[in-house]
Design a protein around this nucleic acid. Structure first.
Lengths: 226, 226
DNA sequence: ACAAAAGTGTTGTATATACACCCATGA
DNA sequence: TCATGGGTGTATATACAACACTTTTGT
């Protein structure tokens, strides 16, 4: 694997960083890695790595996901490319960023490894490099996509209640939504189907839904909330 | 300036390519450069260049605009980053693409230089590398932005008639628009103001408009056609 | 006077919003 | 029986789409 010291200093090098979001306890979280060394020792940064010679940018991003948290088969989209000359004080680094949405149980970190952890996306710890900007931009894109597409199911378990879906929207958008209007809108699309089961809690059981198969092809195109 | 042969072959190198659009004779055109050498000798490609050590990506894109057509002070936005391993047969090249909208009179090419020229964006000549994909993606983004923002004025002269504005929209979107609805919508925004002059042709003179100053700050945000 | 482009309103339809009560269950 | 979250309908306002004729000028 390349390290910074392997590389001639005069040429830009290319990394991919991935903003990995999940919903954990109704909170939007982002996966961060704590830096053991200078610069920014102790600060948290996005998981990333150098682009290898024979992999595409998206393959590099998926490799990073696999290496940091054994995450595979997730939804991933290119976000933006950051290339200010001195964003890394050591060398010229150009970073192609991706963002991913996963269910929290998809992540497997090594037992006892507290250098890879979920943090509040809206209230992160001390962040190194320009990664706070990247996270802020990713949140903006996520909120935008949430209003216009059906990406939300990437964050939810296979089956979910309409209240759970609405909670996900409310916590990411940070605004309350009207229950009746929300239900009418999501049911008016053909993206949801009932599983036939219910979730029984303390009170009245709630119908369980899943995203229909064709929803997976419409993440990009469909406007859930026009 | 770096050339491919200067660079060690094992590391990805970074270029910026710029998709420069204009409207010329009511047609959407893209600026292309004819390649003098292999690979793809004779094919047309996007203007581009290597990212230099001390310039940002956007600065690199502006340098390309200045070098190829003495174009300065134009609207520019990052588009996407292309990085498939063998998109350039000679070496691993990662290209950060930008797109720009200019008025056709902004371009100054050297007299007699026919290796830099406007081509039909919707009906381009033979294109080298994967630049046809890049152009197609840029058109898609342009159409999208046109429906949701006020970018169109980047393509029009300082003063224009409503019919000229509608023509611009119709030729980029490739669909006819209703004259009354179009006028009502654009005038309902506060993005346009009358210059007070009229354009006299063969027939009834048309009022001239300009984009108001605050429109320039709202290119990104404002939805012209919600 | 006529050709050609500029300019102008109304109506129906669809969509978004605001809002409050009854239902089913477990304790 | 009561506490809790699940589930439901209507009325109003706003936005969009369809549509045709009159006005002004130059020749």
């Amino acid at each position: 694997m390349n390290t910074l010291s392997d590389l001639p200093p005069e040429l830009p090098k290319v990394t991919v960083d991935v903003v990995i979001f999940t919903l954990l306890n109704d909170e939007l979280k982002v996966l961060l890695v704590q830096r053991p060394i200078q610069p920014f020792a102790g600060s948290w940064t996005l998981p990333g790595g150098f682009v290898q010679a024979e992999e595409s940018l998206e393959e590099a991003a998926r490799r990073v996901l696999a290496e940091k948290g054994r995450i595979s088969n997730v939804w991933l989209e290119q976000l933006y490319t950051f290339g200010e000359p001195h964003r890394d004080p050591r060398a010229r680094i150009i970073t192609v960023t991706y963002f991913a949405l996963i269910r929290p149980d998809t992540l497997q970190t090594r037992y006892g490894d507290d250098t890879v952890a979920w943090h509040y996306a809206y209230d992160p710890p001390v962040i190194g490099f320009d990664h706070a900007d990247i996270i802020a931009y990713a949140i903006q894109r996520l909120r935008y996509k949430l209003e216009y597409t059906a990406v939300a199911f990437q964050l939810l378990p296979e089956a979910f209640t309409l209240t759970e879906l609405q909670n996900a929207y409310e916590h990411i958008l940070r605004e309350p939504l009207d229950k009746r209007n929300f239900r009418r809108k999501v049911l008016a699309t053909d993206l949801l189907e009932e599983t036939g089961d219910v979730r029984s809690g303390d009170h009245r059981p709630a119908k369980l839904f899943r995203f229909s198969e064709n929803a997976r092809f419409e993440i990009q195109a469909r406007r859930l909330f026009p």
